[in-house]
Simulated scan of single mutants.
Amino acid sequence: MFLVLAVLSGCAGEPVRTPATYVVRPDDTLYSIAWRNHLDYRQLAAWNGIGRDYRIVVGERLRLHPPAYRQGTPRPAPPRIRRWAGKSTAPRLGTRVVPAAPAAARSAVAAALRWRWPTRHAGPVHRLVNGALLIHGMEGQIVRAAAAGRVVYTGRGIPGFGLLVIIKHSTHVLSAYAYNAAVTVSDGQRVAAGTPIARMGVNAKGTPMLYFEIRADGRTIDPLPYLP
């Protein structure tokens, strides 16, 4: 497998300026709004007085910044994630050494996660500077959940991602699968690692590929250290 560092103009994952507010649209979920604006869904809920059911209403205007926002305030570090112990569905990208975290520093949630490649590759894997991956393949091939979790969004409501699936793996960690031709799961569905969730589609240029991203506490993290 080839690994290429790249910044693709106009692609999903490109940095965007977060507006002050957002008006809820049909088919939005709190998770998709947070993802669209690079926020932690829990913070978004807290800033808007939303309960733990995370229910939102079409037409509701949501605050996208804390009431007393101060620039430069550090965000919490993302949780550590253990490597998935199963068989790889894609070759390794060379030898990588992942430092073991002290036992006291591992959260119970992070320790429970096991990751796998979300699809087979048929060409290079491009890693964007934010850590997200573009995995080339064949149009229509199966896209699978990279870890166990619950589907929290399916749809086309986020510009640049096409038909998108977002899976919540824990309180802290979510993953996204974009450029799909079709989705085979529904919102709220629980999935195991390896469960088929979609069929690979094409990007805006017509190239078959999967956009794959992991976020922890609203921040994109590099998936490569955790993929077998």
Rank of each mutant, 00 (worst) to 15 (best):
R106F: 00
S107W: 00
S107E: 05
V109N: 05
V109I: 04
V109R: 01
A110R: 02
R114E: 15
R114Q: 15
W115L: 11
A122S: 12
V125D: 04
V125M: 12
L128H: 14
L128R: 11
V129F: 09
V129G: 00
N130H: 13
N130L: 12
A132K: 03
L133S: 02
L134A: 10
L134P: 04
I135Q: 00
I135P: 02
I135R: 02
I135M: 10
H136Y: 14
H136F: 11
E139Q: 15
G140P: 07
G140S: 06
Q141F: 08
I142W: 05
V143Q: 10
A145N: 14
A146P: 00
A147T: 04
A148W: 07
A148C: 08
A148P: 10
V151L: 14
V151W: 02
V152G: 05
T154G: 06
T154S: 12
R156H: 10
G157L: 01
P159Q: 10
G162A: 11
V165D: 00
I166K: 01
I167V: 15
T171V: 07
H172S: 06
H172A: 08
L174N: 03
L174Q: 03
Y179E: 04
A181C: 07
A181H: 12
T184G: 10
T184D: 07
V185E: 05
V185N: 05
V185Q: 00
V185Y: 06
V185M: 03
G188E: 13
G188Y: 13
Q189W: 05
R190M: 12
R190Y: 07
V191Q: 06
V191K: 02
V191M: 07
V191A: 08
A192E: 15
A192V: 08
A192Q: 13
A192W: 07
